[in-house]
Amino acid sequence: MAEFEPKIIAFVCNWCTYTGADLTGTSRIKHATNVRIIRLPCTGRIDFMLLMKAFARGADGVIVSGCHPNDCHYTSGNFHARRRWILFRSLLNFMGVDARRIIFSWVSAAEGAKWAEVVNTAVKEIRALGPYDEYKNLAPIRASWRTEHAG
């Protein structure tokens, strides 16, 4: 049987991590291809509902990444985001949702190598955890059916 390939959605900010991921490419650093990047203006814009949506639509893991503290393009977006993540992560854990499947990181525009490392580590960890069937099976319609028929 082929090895399980996790589907991971990365929500990243435009100014640091997205640019950093770009640098990973221009630096010709290879990394796992399981990650689909969604670019948002700022980590402050990464609504927790987006993460819920990713899982509902069949993601096995999620990466959330943005500018290091004090480096936010909008001065304080990541500080506000960090407070929300602290509460959100704790709430998910309290509800029994597998918070290990959400990986948070700070990756700056200069850290192309770090992004590759974050992606590779995330893929390795999520692969070890296996598919997130527990969550996918909550939907009344199988996630696989939706992927095949609704894209």
């Binding site: 602290i86 990181s105 974050v118």
Partner: peptide, 16 residues
């Protein structure tokens, strides 16, 4: 209102 504020040194242990 804690979520309308922040401290630059808010502590967490899960962000890489």
């Amino acid at each position: 209102y804690a979520l309308a504020a922040f401290k630059p040194d808010d502590k967490e242990d899960f962000i890489r």
